[in-house]
């Protein structure tokens, strides 16, 4: 086992351990913090694969944004200090079954699949290349999805404002 494989297994242990602790934690706030570890582990996996840009996005969006949002909403809505209800024996049992089944299924899929696909086009995944491609209108440019996403964000903002805004009652 060389160093690279070791790093991979350590990262996997962090991801899976974080995920397992997150679902078994008694306090919901702790569950959110364990989720954080799992997500950082995934970012590490991207670094390991030399996808620096995606790793950075993973940290900024998931670790920095979404987990913070989850923690905020836990503080706003839930009594974060209190222990959660103990799940029943039956649901524990089925959870274990589901996990074993999923693991077996995943193993079978990976065993059967050869994964000889090469991404088309093969490009250096640097931030500069990604940025250029995103606004490129020539071959393999992604300007259309980029614009569609902007409309989606505009619509989402309008929707949020309409729902959240409180109009002053007219006299």
């Amino acid at each position: 086992m060389n160093a690279s494989t070791m790093v991979f297994y350590i990262l996997s242990a962090v991801i899976l351990g974080g995920a397992l602790l997150s679902v078994t934690a008694k306090k919901i706030f702790r569950a959110a913090v364990f989720l954080l570890f799992s997500l950082i582990g995934i970012a590490g996996l991207y670094f390991y694969l030399n996808y620096e840009f995606i790793a950075a996005v993973q940290i900024v969006v998931y670790v920095g944004g979404i987990v913070v949002l989850i923690i905020f909403s836990i503080f706003l809505t839930h009594e974060s200090g209190r222990d959660m209800k103990e799940p029943s024996m039956i649901s524990n049992l089925f959870a274990v079954f589901a996990c074993c089944f999923a693991a077996a299924l995943t193993y079978l899929f990976i065993k059967e699949e050869h994964f000889n696909a090469t991404p088309n086009p093969t490009l250096e995944p640097s931030a500069r290349n990604i940025g250029t491609q995103m606004l490129d209108i020539t071959r393999y440019g992604y300007i259309l999805p980029f614009e569609a996403v902007s409309i989606l964000l505009l619509a989402a903002m309008i929707g949020c404002i309409v729902i959240a805004i409180k109009l002053k009652p007219k006299e």
Binding site: P145, A148, V149, I151, L152, A155, A156, I158, G159, C160, V162, I163
Partner: peptide, 12 residues
């Protein structure tokens, strides 16, 4: 993206 664009604003 089309699917998302056609379902998220609908919820609002």
């Amino acid at each position: 993206l089309g699917i998302e664009l056609s379902s998220i604003p609908l919820a609002a």
